[in-house]
Design a protein around this nucleic acid. Structure first.
Length: 140
DNA sequence: GCCAACGTTGGC
DNA sequence: GCCAACGTTGGC
């Protein structure tokens, strides 16, 4: 059995766009990323990749799972044409949100990109970390 | 090409 | 509201 999917984490301020809003809307264009490192991650996303949805500023927790439904395309909101967007669809809310404090306290997650560089808005997650967080969410 | 100044993000 | 981390801008 080969799992070719990759795993990612995206951040959003819930007051701007929450996971509940994604569920309500059924899909969203993940645009507005203006950071080169984050843009590289967007370009590496493939359809079917799984994405943790993290609430920043308020909530401070991974609250749901999304899936890449359209690979990277030019971000229409970027006049320079340098940055890209992807499309995401909701998969499901986590049974139990996994808080930033819990992730920081778990030594198995010490290498997570988002913990090492808190400002990165789109970051990769190893399969090991992905399943560790699922376990923390009471999903396994 | 360097580096100081400034802006933005995000946790606390 | 504050501050640390980081990216970007612009003068030299």
């Amino acid at each position: 059995m080969t799992d070719t999917r990759s795993y990612w984490l995206v951040k959003s301020e819930p007051t701007t766009f929450s996971f509940e809003a994604l569920v309500r809307d059924g899909r969203t264009v993940w645009d507005g990323v203006r950071n080169n490192a984050a843009a590289l991650h967007l370009k590496a996303m493939m359809v079917g990749d799984q994405v943790f949805f993290y609430h920043s500023q308020e909530g401070l927790a991974v609250v749901g799972i999304a899936e890449v439904s359209q690979p990277a395309f030019p971000d229409a909101s970027d006049p320079t044409g340098r940055f890209v967007a992807v499309e995401l669809i909701p998969v499901r809310a986590l049974k139990v949100p996994v808080t930033l404090a819990q992730m920081k306290a778990n030594p198995a997650l010490a290498d997570m990109a988002m913990l090492r560089q808190s400002r990165l808005s789109v970051s990769p997650i190893s399969p090991e970390a992905w399943f560790e967080i699922l376990k923390m969410a009471d999903e396994v």
